[in-house]
Design a protein around this nucleic acid. Structure first.
Lengths: 255, 255
DNA sequence: CGAGGGTTTGAAGTGCATCAAATAGTGTGG
DNA sequence: CCACACTATTTGATGCACTTCAAACCCTCG
């Protein structure tokens, strides 16, 4: 797996402050408020596999991912694991900390060497009550995230396995897109995790990927995927999806 | 279908104000603010099947359901319909109105004779900026809702059709539970819609219900479902779900 | 080189969808 | 209150998608 740019040492105050101010979450806040958050931040470097908390634990902290990948998942009594999402830089979780006494509804684990910042739930709540702008920022981010989740639910309901994979690839493309280069992307984490993320078994994932290759002409070498014909891929995947052609995410990144 | 208590005429100012103040969304707001919302509210009675807006329309209004059932759904190019959720009294939608210029990511339709209140997006945004308490309330409701959605995603990934149905029934039970009576509930809307809501075809739904009868001893007459043995039902459904036994929703209602 | 995890492949099974048709249920006008 | 029309629901037969279990392959890293 390609390494992300995780420093093994926590950032210093200035670095952290710069990172925080780059987040939509903290946009428009006063320097004082930012400094306050930075002071009270707990920064952690997480080794691969590190569990942050388990489903059912009381919500004590609110987290923002700085680097790496954090997996949110639920485990059933029968031992199946449902991966709810896999988050990376700039994503946050635990925002239900604005309730008191609630519990995490999933477990969180570092997929790879990762880095997160966190704050005690009380601080987030206190500051959100104090600074309307912060509350609004959280709200916007959550509304944004909700759209993604709704899309995800649609995908689970109406797309086939190969289509879900293709749709995921298209979303990756849209993030890094440079129109002048051949669209080539790297799968951000293990195929087996990706499979779970998409609600599939890894065997099914593997087979579905083969189907996708045949149908859309993409090629795969390890984690590297190249997409010679984006339109073909979009057409194959998005017909079973309500997003107009090409994909909504793609459109956003073009705008 | 059993009729909900929809009045055919809009409520008067006082009624509406009482309804609004009962919403968690408006909890703790000043009388003035409530009155302001009430004044600017547009109340609509929606005939069965009425489309409120279509996916892709610009977000002009923020809605709260007063009575009835509102279906949020997406349609694929191939004509499949994915029902994202079916909302009822006290639920709200269109809260992405706090962004400007965004578009609805699904369509909304009245399933039955329903009644909704709505406000121009600008009013919601303006008031959320003005009254921190409102922003916090929206935020809390959204965090709450997110938990439901995450659960839903898990269900789609790991539960079988009969288990999903059983889980849905358990949630209904928990809403109306009176420990002293035999747990009997009414399906809130058409079985065919319920099927879509759970990501199934109606034929599959019907068959899955038969399986559930055999496995858990429930009986069904039309829309009436009685559950002689809740534990058996929970056990059958929740083994494939990460919520502890009995179901989290059930626990909440007991607390 | 060899151990161990991640990934792919094969054969067989299960669950859900599809298509087609029967049945139950609901609302209508007579 | 009944008969008809129409819709919702159920049932049957069959097919496809995804899973399961098992084994091979591959890749990395000590």
């Amino acid at each position: 797996m390609h390494s992300s740019s995780v420093h093994s040492l926590p950032a210093n105050e200035k670095e952290r402050c710069a990172f925080l101010s780059s987040l939509p979450l903290f946009r428009g806040l006063s320097q004082d408020t930012l400094a306050y958050f930075s002071e009270h931040a707990r920064e952690e470097v997480l080794p691969k596999g590190k569990i942050l908390f388990l489903q059912g634990d009381p919500v004590n902290y609110f987290y923002v991912v700085m680097d790496g990948w954090i997996k949110l998942f639920r485990e059933t009594l029968e031992g199946d694991e449902a991966v709810i999402d896999v988050l990376t830089t700039h994503h946050f979780f635990g925002e239900m900390a604005v309730f008191d006494g609630k519990r995490y509804s999933w477990s969180a684990q570092a997929v790879d060497l990762s880095r997160v910042v966190s704050w005690p739930a009380a601080i987030l709540e206190e500051q959100a009550l104090l600074h309307n702008r912060l509350a609004i920022n959280i709200l916007r981010s959550m509304a944004d995230y909700r759209e993604q989740r709704d899309r995800e639910i649609e995908h689970l309901k109406v797309q086939t396995a190969p289509q879900r994979i293709g749709c995921f690839l298209l979303r990756l493309v849209s993030e890094h897109w440079d129109k002048n280069t051949v669209p080539t992307i790297h799968l951000p984490y293990d195929k087996s995790l990706l499979a779970l993320r998409l609600g599939l078994k890894s065997e099914t994932f593997s087979r579905a990927l083969n189907v996708l290759k045949k149908e859309t002409g993409i090629t795969i070498r390890g984690a590297a995927v190249s997409i010679p014909n984006i339109d073909k891929l979009s057409h194959y995947c998005c017909g079973a999806c309500s997003n107009e052609f090409p994909c909504q995410d793609l459109k956003q990144s073009n705008a």
